[in-house]
Structure formats: C-alpha cells, structure tokens
C-alpha cells in the first residue's frame, strides 16, 4: 500500500500514482472476500476465528489480519486502530449488505432463466 517516492524533498514528486495503483491489484476482490465471510458464517465462526499461518514475508508474521479489508498489520494495537477507522467500518457495512454482483445475476437480468443442470446423476 501507499505511493511514497524515495525523493520526498521534491514537492512535485511526493506521491507516485504508479505504486499507489500496484496495491490495488494485490487486494482481494469484493466477491472473494464476501464468499470467505459467508463460508466462515456457515461454520458458525466469527471473522476473527480463522487460523493464520506464520509467514515471514508479511507484516507481523501474518498474524494480524483483517478479513474484511484483506490487510495484514504489524501488531495487535495497529489492528485495533484499524478496526476503529472509518474505512474499515465502511467496508464492514458493505460486506454485511447484499451479495456482490455475479455472472448469474447478469444472466438473470438479461432475461435468462436459472441454469438447467438436468437430473441429478447420483443420489447423495
């Protein structure tokens, strides 16, 4: 995240839009996050309950993770601070709302019926 340049002294070059954009592609998309949250909710777990593997490359060894915003933090205190932020609260609100748009929604809106998968081949 961020778009800071090495040459901060020059007023014009304080922010680099190129590096700012780079983080955008690393972030998980809305529907992927939503799916993850739904999966956790189905198991009756909280968003906090997910087990986190230790990863040296991530901030805080990948132990302080915000599922809603798909971000890793350096420590518990930083994470708590993030939870109090407006950005996080907005994100939680979006994620607790209706499911994100999918290809199925697009098909239904185009006037197609539900997909027809035929009879079930094997009974479970």
């Amino acid at each position: 995240m961020g778009g800071k340049c090495p040459h901060r002294k020059v007023k014009k070059r304080r922010l680099s839009h190129k590096t700012a954009r780079r983080g955008k592609f690393l972030l998980k998309a809305d529907d992927a996050v939503y799916e993850e949250l739904v999966k956790l909710a189905d198991h009756g777990k909280d968003a906090e309950a997910k087990e986190l593997p230790v990863d040296e490359d991530l901030p805080g060894m990948g132990q302080f993770y915000c599922l809603h915003c798909d971000r890793y933090f350096a420590s518990e205190s930083v994470k708590d601070e993030h939870y109090r932020s407006k950005r996080h609260k907005k994100r939680v609100k979006v994620m607790s709302g209706p499911a994100p748009h999918t290809q199925l929604d697009a098909d239904l809106a185009a006037g197609m019926g539900m997909p027809d998968n035929g009879l079930k081949l094997m009974s479970m």
């Binding site: 098909d107 006037g111 197609m112 019926g113 539900m114 997909p115 027809d116 998968n117 035929g118």
Partner: peptide, 11 residues
C-alpha cells in the same frame, strides 16, 4: 413466461 426459454443448459 418468456424468460424460461433461454437458459444455460449444462447437459
């Protein structure tokens, strides 16, 4: 009722 005709048929 016309929405029932066009659909993905995975069979």
């Amino acid at each position: 009722s016309t929405f029932e005709f066009e659909r993905k048929r995975n069979r």
